[in-house]
Design a protein around this nucleic acid. Structure first.
Lengths: 156, 156
DNA sequence: GTATTTGCAAAATGTTTGCAGCTGC
DNA sequence: GCAGCTGCAAACATTTTGCAAATAC
């Protein structure tokens, strides 16, 4: 296996120029509410629900509406800047995602997220493909556990 | 890697005695609507939403209510007889599950499901654990693709 | 300047709860 | 017989839509 390459999910906003560019490439504009949503996710470093994002986004841009948060999340997901995560206790939360294919480890205690991108599943996929006859074209992998802080807390 | 062991999701209902036993072990009864839900999932061989299950369950037991379907799915999931699956196009469908830890491959064309249980992720998990400091306690893996029938159809 | 985006109110959707009567064991 | 289960109606939560005003570029 290749050495794991881990990336902490952004905890300072991704360059705004970069974001603007990604949006512009698809004909979208970088507006105040969109900036607010990205900033919230960037600072959070953990998964957030649309409602949580909405509440926090108002600190950045007071009149952000919940509807816009929903629309923005769809849009950012389409651009790959954000990813929807499915947790045992609810499948409607989001986290910032870096470019390219990657997965998340989510802390069950505080919902903090860390990305990892070395999902070497090729052997597994090949085996499943051979045995089932299905042509596998995608996969979803999420890991759950406890982050270092929560482990320490649990021990205390 | 161990040889892959594949199991087609039941397409005849699991022994009813077996089901009754699993329920009784937790103080639950095997009722008509519960039987209906399990039969529907067994015959479907594919993922179904609560609404779909409800509609089809009425063929087995006419007065099955949607509310009961929801309650039954929760209960069966708790017993491990059923698993909730999260697909790109909606995260609220269910499929029958055999005993023990297993994952599903889902066809994007017809939503048919096949289980597989040889998810050898130990190396991956160890690497992620080492690099992130997270204590990994669980994972979710789902594969997406096209089943043999849909591949043939797509080619036609 | 113009097409896109926004917030609001309202509608649609999906899920849960309260409760009196029914049913499995 | 009695606990557990059911269906219904109604409550609830969440997400989507329609539209006139506001905004980014």
């Amino acid at each position: 296996m290749l050495p794991a390459e881990m990336k902490t999910v952004f905890n300072s906003e991704p360059t705004e120029a970069q974001l603007a560019e990604a949006l512009a490439a698809r004909g979208y504009k970088l507006t105040r509410p969109r900036r607010a949503v990205v900033r919230v996710l960037a600072h959070a470093g953990r998964t957030l629900t649309p409602a949580e994002i909405h509440a926090q986004a108002q600190a950045h841009y007071a009149q952000t509406g919940l509807v816009t948060v929903y629309r923005t999340l769809d849009l950012l997901a389409e651009c790959g800047a954000v990813r929807k995560l499915h947790q045992p206790d609810g499948c409607h939360s989001f986290a910032l995602a870096s470019e390219g294919h990657a997965h998340h480890v989510i802390c069950q205690g505080c919902h903090s997220v860390v990305e990892f991108d070395n999902c070497d599943l090729s052997a597994l996929l090949a085996a499943v493909q051979r045995r089932t006859g299905y042509k596998i074209s995608g996969h979803w992998l999420e890991l759950f556990g406890l982050c270092p802080a929560c482990r320490a807390g649990a021990r205390a």
